[in-house]
Simulated scan of single mutants.
Amino acid sequence: MNLVRVNVEGTTKVTKVVVPGMHKRKKGAIVNVGSGASIVLPSHPLYAIYAATKAPGKNLKKYGSWALVTGPTDGIGKSFAFQLARKGLNLVLVGRNPDKLKEVSDGIQAKFGKVQIKNVVVDFSGDLSEGIRKIEEAIEGLDIGVLINNVGISYPYARFFHEVDEQLLKNLIQINVQGTTKVTQAVLPGMLKRKKGAIVNIGSGAAIVIPSDPLYAVYAATKA
């Protein structure tokens, strides 16, 4: 059984390798990592304990020398960016705020030195087609081995479903669903061509731990 283990600030996530077209060679992975316990594990509880605590981690550089992270300027995305750089991967950082992107990339290079970083400014709530075009141009010729689909938004505060305004509804669907899907479409062909790659989709425990997550229903639906 081929496993991928991802460490983010002391939390270990493990999953089976299931990337379409790669499973026969056991060199790819898709894992949904939530803010709660939304991880994919084999069903036997003892195996799950072993996989989460004792299974050896993967050498992520075997997937490729570059990783792409969306939403890398805060929280989980920023932690992923630093940890991937620690593992020796070069980075493509995709976010909407150029100042924050520079701050993160400068911090990574100050800490890890030789890591190459490309910053791509994309507002996922704006012209998504133009944003994906920028990403495709930035990754052309790069062996993107790891994709971290982290970008996402929630409600500014709890609301009943009928209180969710049209702009918020549009942004939730476009950023959380379409953004993740389109970035994956941009990166996956290269992984399939090289027959290796890992894709990590950041979900939320709101979609699993609390069914439908009352007062955040659309967010829960888009982050399942």
Rank of each mutant, 00 (worst) to 15 (best):
I153F: 08
V14E: 12
T73K: 04
G205T: 14
K13I: 15
K182W: 08
P45Y: 14
L89Q: 05
Q116W: 04
T11D: 06
K182N: 03
T73Q: 03
G75D: 09
Y63D: 05
G107T: 11
L3D: 03
E136Y: 03
P211W: 15
G21D: 08
V115R: 10
I173V: 15
K102I: 14
P56I: 02
E163W: 00
V17K: 02
Q178K: 08
P56T: 02
A207M: 04
V8F: 05
K61A: 13
V69I: 14
H23G: 06
F112W: 09
E130L: 14
A110S: 12
V151M: 07
H23V: 15
P45G: 07
K134L: 15
A186M: 11
A52I: 09
I199Y: 01
G113E: 11
V104P: 05
L68E: 06
I76V: 14
T73I: 12
K223Y: 05
P211K: 12
A55T: 10
V121M: 06
V187C: 11
G36C: 09
L168P: 03
R25F: 15
M22E: 14
I135S: 00
S65F: 06
I175S: 02
V151T: 09
R5A: 04
I139D: 03
V94F: 10
P189E: 13
Y50P: 05
P20H: 07
A138W: 00
V69L: 10
S105R: 06
E136H: 04
L93C: 04
G131S: 12
P98C: 07
R133D: 13
N59M: 03
D213K: 00
K87N: 07
G113K: 06
E103T: 08
I30W: 07
N201E: 01
L84H: 12
V40N: 11
N7E: 12
K193L: 03
A110E: 12
K27H: 05
F82R: 13
G152Y: 04
G77R: 07
Q83C: 03
K134T: 11
D143H: 07
S154Y: 14
L147P: 05
P56L: 05
G88P: 07
F161P: 00
D123E: 04
P45V: 14
G88C: 14
L84Y: 10
I76S: 04
V4R: 02
N2Y: 14
D143R: 09
T222L: 09
G131Q: 11
I173A: 04
